[in-house]
């Protein structure tokens, strides 16, 4: 059913939803941008319509809500350990997010739940609590290319939400929410709208193989990249993590095991015993990332990994554009194919 809400009605709805759910949405954090006097747009808990930044793109993806940056897996003493799965009594979560990010979470599901015989229980617990409220995109930003990756659309949501001049149009797909939405909203015809065109068009490389490995493209990127890792941290589909064992400083007989985000761009990712690091060069690291996003993941799961949100473009201090990289890979494969 479709519903129309005034701002007040929507706030009443959110207030009641908040008694049952934790609500996460894009928010503006004033003065919290990297440089002085700039704002940060990022996910956080929200309780009111005015707090939700419908018209801004977040710098970080919503993946951190269901896949925290740091997650303690278990606590240990010398004798025993205590697993730390999210407690059952925790509220379920509503996440306001865009089509690209829902597509991103589907890719996370693939790698964390369907990759090999074991499901990632830590992810599964939090993921199971998430309900998606799809934010309608009323504009495509400078770096977006979701139409090229096919992630401009999704059917995987509980409620579709479009904010327009202080009014909120919703389409409820998940029956769990029907009653509460009908309590506060007026019935209305609501049709989901999706972005149909981006400023950037990317020709996805049909097939990439190792013939691109020795291309001079990577030398150019090696000279430009500073290996800061921002592109992977903000990416809605990057799920690499590392494991850290912490021994408490005041009592090293106790501690905890954490899993913490890691990145193929950052020093130490490929460090192995005996001090070997097999992707020391920054060009090699970017090549690995590109191959993973454009080829390897697709081979395993049948999905193009990148969802075209363009956050990596926005975040890169060296202005390395992944959409441009994908287009260049397509060109290069065309060239080597002709030879």
């Amino acid at each position: 059913m479709g519903y129309l809400f005034s701002a007040d009605a929507f706030n009443s709805l959110l207030a009641e939803l908040k008694t049952r759910y934790k609500i996460f949405a894009p928010k503006i954090y004033r003065g919290k941008g990297r440089t002085a006097g700039t704002d940060l747009v990022a996910y956080g808990e929200a309780g009111e319509l005015a707090e939700i930044a419908f018209d801004r793109k977040t710098a970080f993806s919503p993946k951190e809500i269901i896949f925290p940056v740091n997650q303690t897996m278990f606590y240990f003493t010398k004798e025993e350990f205590q697993e730390n799965l999210p407690p059952k009594e925790d509220k379920d979560m509503i996440i306001f997010l865009r089509a690209c990010d829902i597509n991103g979470i589907e890719r996370m599901d693939a790698i964390l739940l369907q990759n090999g015989p074991y499901r990632d229980v830590y992810y599964e617990k939090l993921r199971g609590k998430a309900r998606f409220f799809l934010i309608a995109c009323d504009q495509s930003w400078e770096s977006c290319f979701c139409v090229s990756t096919g992630s401009n659309r999704t059917e995987n949501y509980s409620v579709y939400v479009r904010e327009e001049n202080g009014q909120v149009f919703c389409l409820v797909k998940d029956r769990d929410f029907e009653e509460i939405f009908s309590k506060y909203g007026r019935p209305a015809d609501v049709e989901p709208r999706f972005i149909e065109e981006n400023k950037i068009r990317v020709r996805l490389p049909e097939e990439i193989d190792q013939r691109v490995f020795g291309h001079k493209l990577w030398e150019e990127y090696a000279a430009r990249c500073s290996a800061c890792g921002r592109c992977t941290v903000c990416c809605p589909t990057c799920t690499c993590f590392t494991i850290q064992d912490i021994f408490y400083r005041d009592n090293p007989d106790c501690g905890e095991r954490r899993r913490v985000w890691a990145s193929c761009l950052i020093d130490g990712f490929t460090d192995m015993a005996a001090g070997v690091s097999f992707r020391a060069g920054y060009g090699e690291r970017l090549r690995f990332r590109a191959m993973h996003k454009a080829a390897d993941f697709k081979k395993r799961f049948g999905l193009f990994m990148c969802v075209g949100c363009g956050r990596c473009d926005d975040a890169c201090p060296e202005y390395i554009s992944f959409s441009k990289c994908l287009n260049r890979l397509s060109e290069i494969m065309g060239e080597v194919g002709q030879r």
């Binding site: 919290k32 990297r34 710098a59 970080f60 940056v69 890792g229 921002r230 985000w261 990145s263």
Partner: peptide, 15 residues
């Protein structure tokens, strides 16, 4: 100097 904020990829350091 705020260099840590500038270098941090995740926003763990903020202003």
């Amino acid at each position: 100097c705020g260099e840590c904020v500038l270098k941090c990829p995740t926003g763990a350091w903020s202003r």
